[in-house]
């Protein structure tokens, strides 16, 4: 099936892209990696009048670590994240999220910004980005704002972005010492699959062998948006990590999950809930191992 008709624009800068967005209004659509948008257009789920292609904008393709903070341009491809030694070294769960996304061919096109802005509950990057406390830079012609990713998603396919805003950058501060994170996704096949469920966990310890001073757990595919499991996080705070504790956190996450199961969804609610527990326990274990360092 061919694509619907639209006008094509390839702005050379973010400013130009913003001007175009402002000019064409809500019937314009940003084309980042296109791996979702092309399908949506082909299937007539999205019918934009104007397609604004941004993967050619150089300033959106920087991967910058110079400020002690990781700044990812929104058009950095997933493949670059996966292959970056710096990202793997400090933000391993993000790297794992990238590896879980699509096939290697899709990862060569798909962008970090696209995986966030399309706001799909099964997306791979939001859980790790949320546990790392990412913030997002949104630009429009007149202004720029920075929002926490925690407050970015408002529903499936819906975000706080205004129609004339572009997600330009993703910022991650360096995780503190004695912290770690883990990401797991569950599909039917070994790889290149659409997630049945995905979970990221993060713990920061109060020194080597210390108590948990910070914890974040985020799950996908159980609600219209990715959700943080505050009940499970709170249960961990101030406690010494142990298998039993993680088991309880997993139970709490399971109880907090309210997946919708239907004959047409990828899995039943019961299975998803059980898997929330399983993946929470497993990712917490991964996070702890990383927090304790290679000596553990």
């Amino acid at each position: 099936m061919s694509l619907p008709e639209f006008d094509f624009h390839a702005p050379g800068s973010v400013d130009e892209a913003c001007r175009m967005l402002a000019e064409y209004g809500p019937k314009a659509k940003i084309f980042a990696g296109g791996t979702d948008l092309m399908l949506d257009m082909r299937r007539r789920r999205i019918l934009p009048e104007n397609v604004i292609s941004i993967p050619g904008i150089e300033e959106l393709k920087t991967l910058d670590l110079s400020s002690g903070m990781l700044k990812i341009g929104s058009c950095v491809t997933i493949a670059r994240i996966v292959k970056s030694k710096e990202v793997a070294g400090k933000w391993g769960a993000l790297c794992a999220g990238g590896k879980a996304l699509g096939s290697c061919l899709v990862r060569n096109l798909a962008t970090v910004g696209g995986n966030i802005a399309s706001a799909r509950p099964a997306a791979d990057l939001p859980p790790p980005l949320m546990v790392y406390g990412a913030s997002l830079v949104l630009k429009k012609t007149s202004a720029e704002r920075v929002v926490s990713i925690d407050h970015f998603f408002t529903g499936t396919g819906a975000t706080v972005m205004a129609p004339d805003e572009i997600l330009t950058e993703i910022r991650l501060s360096e995780p503190p010492p004695h912290s770690g994170a883990g990401y797991l996704n569950l599909g039917i096949r070994n790889a290149c699959d659409i997630n049945i469920l995905n979970v990221a966990s993060y713990v920061a310890l109060d020194g080597p062998g210390g108590a948990i001073k910070d914890a974040r757990i985020v799950m996908g595919c159980v609600a219209p948006t990715h959700v943080r499991v505050l009940s499970a996080e709170n249960l961990l705070l101030g406690e010494k990590p142990s298998e039993a504790l993680f088991e309880r956190a997993g139970e709490a996450a399971m109880n907090a999950a309210t997946p919708r199961g239907s004959a047409y969804s990828r899995a039943s609610a019961e299975y998803k809930k059980d898997m929330v527990k399983e993946l929470t326990v497993r990712t917490l274990g991964m996070a702890l191992r990383e927090a304790l360092g290679p000596a553990s």
């Binding site: 096939s103 039917i188 096949r189 070994n190 790889a191 290149c192 699959d193 659409i194």
Partner: peptide
Amino acid sequence: LAEYKIPRALD
């Protein structure tokens, strides 16, 4: 062929 799943090289 995303949701009708046949084996890939990794499977």
